[in-house]
């Protein structure tokens, strides 16, 4: 089992990112802007092994809303190392914050309350670390995303399933809406579906062969292990799309529809 109680280090080479360990939340109440999610069980689309068809997930704290442009602007102002004109090319690509008018201002075209996009994994990580937080893992994110408004597991509810599929089938060719406009789910978390893709800590664990029709044939020399296993629910197109999307990413990538939110360990006794 992955140990979730490890303290995460500052990622960036320069130690300008404040180690916020002193601002640890109390073990009983989530920090402001976060809610407690889980514990629970989720079924991965691709079970890495028969034992992982259903995966238990421990309770954790998760941001209620995705990180917004306004949030990220504050971060960049406090940590100039992450300005788009100063950041090193190792951690971002040329699209980093390219939608902002300038390195330290959003401009009139950018909605402060919509999810920040054009951010890389490294930059998202740095943001969360600055709040003494981290990115959620795939299991944590998926567990949170499994909930409907009324139940931790919305997959039993055909109406909810249809609605989620509709989100993913709906064109996203308009500017992103502001966060917080949809109803919170069972855990009180908002905007997990239908707004932006979100970075997770282990995006690189989405090892689906980029040609997923291969179904694991001949993968062993490139991927140790059969990563092209059959999907548990081939009709779950939303999961397919999330997995496919994650597997196309590299850590320095930024795209127009990819943002993030932060998570945090629950420091209570298990």
């Amino acid at each position: 089992m992955i140990s979730l109680t490890r303290v995460f280090r500052v990622l960036a080479a320069v130690s300008l990112v404040a180690a916020g360990a002193s601002a640890a939340p109390s073990a009983t109440a989530p920090p402001p802007g976060m809610k407690s999610v889980g514990p629970g069980v989720y079924r991965p689309l691709y079970a890495a092994s028969p034992a992982e068809r259903e995966v238990p997930v421990r309770a954790f704290y998760l941001d209620v809303k995705p990180v917004t442009n306004a949030d990220y602007l504050s971060f960049v102002q406090a940590h100039p190392k992450w300005r788009r004109d100063r950041v090193t090319g190792l951690f971002v690509d040329e699209g980093y914050l390219s939608h902002w008018q300038a390195a330290e201002s959003l401009g009139p075209e950018v909605r402060p309350a919509s999810p920040v996009t054009h951010v890389s994994w490294f930059s998202a990580k740095a943001y969360c670390a600055a709040r003494a937080a981290r990115l959620p893992t795939e299991r944590e994110w998926e567990l949170a995303a499994l909930a409907s408004e009324t139940s931790p597991d919305g997959s039993r509810n055909p109406e909810w399933v249809a609605r989620i599929l509709a989100f993913y089938a709906t064109p996203a060719n308009r500017p992103l809406a502001d966060v917080g406009k949809t109803k919170p789910n069972f855990w009180g978390i908002e905007d997990l579906h239908g707004l932006a893709w979100e970075w997770i800590h282990d995006y690189g664990a989405s090892l689906v062969a980029s040609d997923s029709r291969e179904k694991g044939e001949g993968q062993n020399l490139r991927f140790c292990g059969a990563s092209g296993a059959d999907a548990q629910d081939p009709a779950d197109y939303a999961s397919f799309m999330r997995v496919a999307f994650r597997s196309s990413l590299e850590a320095s990538y930024t795209t127009a529809r990819l943002g993030f939110r932060c998570a945090k360990d629950v420091r209570s006794a298990p």
Binding site: S210, D211, M241, F245, S248, Y253, T254, R257
Partner: peptide, 25 residues
């Protein structure tokens, strides 16, 4: 979404699909 291409004219794995898997942007 990420996209790729499989050309039926290609002799090679996936018709090019693996080699062309591309994230947005």
């Amino acid at each position: 979404m990420p996209h790729n291409i499989d050309l039926h004219a290609v002799t090679g794995p996936g018709g090019g699909a693996e080699a062309s898997f591309t994230a947005p942007g």
